[in-house]
Structures are given as structure tokens and as C-alpha cells.
Write a protein that binds this DNA or RNA. Sequence first.
DNA 1: CTCGCTACTCACCGATTGGTGACAGCGGGG
DNA 2: CCCCGCTGTCACCAATCGGTGAGTAGCGAG
Lengths: 219, 219
Amino acid sequence: MLNEAVILENSPGAGGEPERRVRDRGATERAILAAAKGLLAEEGFQNFGINAVARRAGCDKQLIYRYYGGLDGLVEAIGTDLGTWVKDRIPEDAGGMFLLTYGDLMERLSLLLLDALRTDPLMRRILAWEISENTEQVRRLAEARSKALALWLERMRGSLAPPKGVDAAVVNAVVIAAIQHLVLAAAAGGQCAGLSLKTSKDWEKAALALKRIVRGVYG
Amino acid sequence: MLNEAVILENSPGAGGEPERRVRDRGATERAILAAAKGLLAEEGFQNFGINAVARRAGCDKQLIYRYYGGLDGLVEAIGTDLGTWVKDRIPEDAGGMFLLTYGDLMERLSLLLLDALRTDPLMRRILAWEISENTEQVRRLAEARSKALALWLERMRGSLAPPKGVDAAVVNAVVIAAIQHLVLAAAAGGQCAGLSLKTSKDWEKAALALKRIVRGVYG
DNA sequence: CTCGCTACTCACCGATTGGTGACAGCGGGG
DNA sequence: CCCCGCTGTCACCAATCGGTGAGTAGCGAG
């Protein structure tokens, strides 16, 4: 019926550049994953969808369904891909640090985490996503992110034991919360609670305050 | 022509609830604003749009354009409406508190802010929105939120001066960041950095850690 | 009662979304 | 060699989005 018309419409006529995509499934899969990660990191989760990813990857969205089973599977793939985060971020001499006290350690870790998040837009976006939505999709991604971060912290910590007096887990969670929110607020609006967070001088002040806080609890 | 059919459909007949909307512009405006606030507080900013608000308000979206000039104006109205937040939240004896030190004050304010945010879904959603998007719309709303919060803090603070040694503004911003992130993470996923934040016992532990942190910096 | 203003509703628009089925074309295995 | 399977492309679907123009219904003034 309509096939003839369709065929005519698709006929290669004198038009533009066909630029036939090479038939390489692996490359296409990587392109899709990279497009998804890039899109999420640059644009955030707001306009993150099948169509946008396919557009950025330069392929048909059908392939996303075929290779990843839809957006959910793709997000999951981003999550598992986050497993490599630790390797990229761990300084090689992680085990060789000589930090005497738990306070030394936490001060150092806090500043490292601050910097790590500040320079990782993807992590930031996932963090923001976590906070704004509560679907299964996001929950799994959040778990992967959380695991990567926990692993990173563990590796960095080495074998230093926390002090007995205070509940270090809870205190650390509060400190991490502060760091994460500072970074998120800065990336979004350049300030937090009236404190400007744009120039490196701003960040130095924030880091100093953070140090003071950590020192305050852990002496 | 069709009028008869329409009239029949709307006629009070045996059918559903016609519930003819009374012709009261003021009431409609209030209904729209209430619908917008409720929708934002309950569903978040993700599905916050003209259609959704109109649906919840039970009126045509055209009225939102007419009375508020579109979503932007409506959001702005929500922002100005936030001006009353302080009055609703200030304990009457705000000026009569006898807090001896700045540390006493900040400890107390931190816990109050924690509770205030924990019991205010609208503020939380706005906060999350702030962090996830950076449009003019959100920026103005964020400003209103920020102003309301700052005013609240100022009123609560009274006339106690901060200590000289530390940069109180920066430290306080970090503490506030921690509080905000704890509340947001809890509302979204029930935990933050591995710390469960569901039961009131969890919150007691978090509050204790927060107190320790504040005490640590302000002595 | 009639007229006119205003509150209100409806129908429609183009764009975009997630999702699916059908088809084209290359390449390797029988 | 031919055929089948895999990769990639396209057209199409229903639903929803923000936005607009036209028209209806009720109330008060004359």
C-alpha cells in the first residue's frame, strides 16, 4: 500500500550525506552510554530521556531499547559504570599516608571529598537526582553512587580506627551532608545560606570552616 | 446546536456533581495558589506545570494565565506568599530567650531549623528545586525562600553577637548546609551517607551529632 | 427586561514525549 | 550461491505538554 511511497521517500535521490553508520554494536553501545553520561552530567536529570540520549548518541532510540532494555537499563549501566569511579579518584599512595589522628584523617578526607565532588559533574547530578526523586530507577543509581563513595572513603581511610567518645558514623554523615550540599548549592546557584561559593577564595573560606568544624569534633 | 447537550451534561440531573463554580475571582485565585503550593509540596517540582495546577485547582488553565500571567507569575506568588513563613514559625517568646553564649544560640537554632525543615514539605521541595535547576523562575523563588529563612534566623538570633575568633557566617553556612542536606536526603531516600534517617531515634542521633559539631566550633 | 461586563469553559494548535512494529542492508554460515 | 540474522532506520502511535482564540454563562446596572 503505502510502501511504494515510503520507498520513494527513502530513495537516496540527489540529496545529502547518507553517512552510513558502521555496523558495530559494541561501538554503538559505548556511544549510547557515553551520550547518557554526558547528557546527565551536562544537562541534569530534568531533560534526561530516551529521545535526548538517542539524539546525542546519533542513533535511533530503538537501539537503546534493544541494547539496554530502555532507560532503566541504561541508568543501571551508568550505575555499574560508576564502579570505576574509585580507581580514577584514588591517589596511588593511598595506603602510604601517615595521618596520626582520626581528626587528621577526617579533615583530610573532608577536603578531598569536597574537591572530588566539585570536579565531578556527573556525581553531582546523580546526587541532585537522588534528592529530588524517589523512583526505583533513581534508587538503584543512588545505591551505586553511595557504594562508590563509601568504597572511596574506606580506601582513603586505611586502617585508622575512630575514637571511642563520639559516634563517628553519625558525625561523619553530617559532615558529608554539609559537603554535598555546599557543592550542590554552589553548582546550582553559586551560593548557600548567603555564603557566596564562586571564586576559589570563597572555597578556601568554606574549606577552612569545614576544617574547623571537623577539628572541633575530633580535636 | 450542541449547547443543549452541554447543558444537559452540566445540568444537575441525576448524574454526578456539577458543583457549579461560584463566580468569585478572589476565591478562584486563592484556590489556584493553594493548588500550586499543595502540588509543589506533595509532588515536587517534577510534574509541576500549568495543566497539573489547573487540574488540581479544578479550573481551566486559562484562568492561571489571566490571574497570574502564567506559571512564572504563579511561582512568584508562591514566593511572596512565603513571606508569611516567619510569622507562622516564630515562637512568641522569641525575644525573651536567655541564651548565654553564641554556642548556646547556634545549637538551639540548628535544632530548630532542622525541625522546621523536617515538618515543612513545601520548603523542602523548593530547596530541592533550587539545587536541581537554575532558571530565572527558580532563582526568584529561591531568593524568597532564602530571605524567609534568613529573616527567621535573624529574629531567632536576637541581639547576640558572634564571637571574634571564627568566621561565624561561613561556619553557619556550612552547618545550615548540613541540616538542609540531611533533611532533603531523609525525605527522598530515608538516609544520608549510610546513616538511616527514618525513626525519631535516628533523628535524635543526628541531632546529637549536630549539637556536638556546633559545640565543637563555638565551644 | 435588556445590555454589557466579567468570570469561566472549551476546542484546538504545534511540539515533544515514551514506545512499537515494519523494513532496509550488510555479512557470515549453511 | 542463497538465506537468515543482526544492525540500523524510519514511520507511526497515543498521551501530554504549554499556549491561545473564541465563545458561553451569570450577575449587576440601567
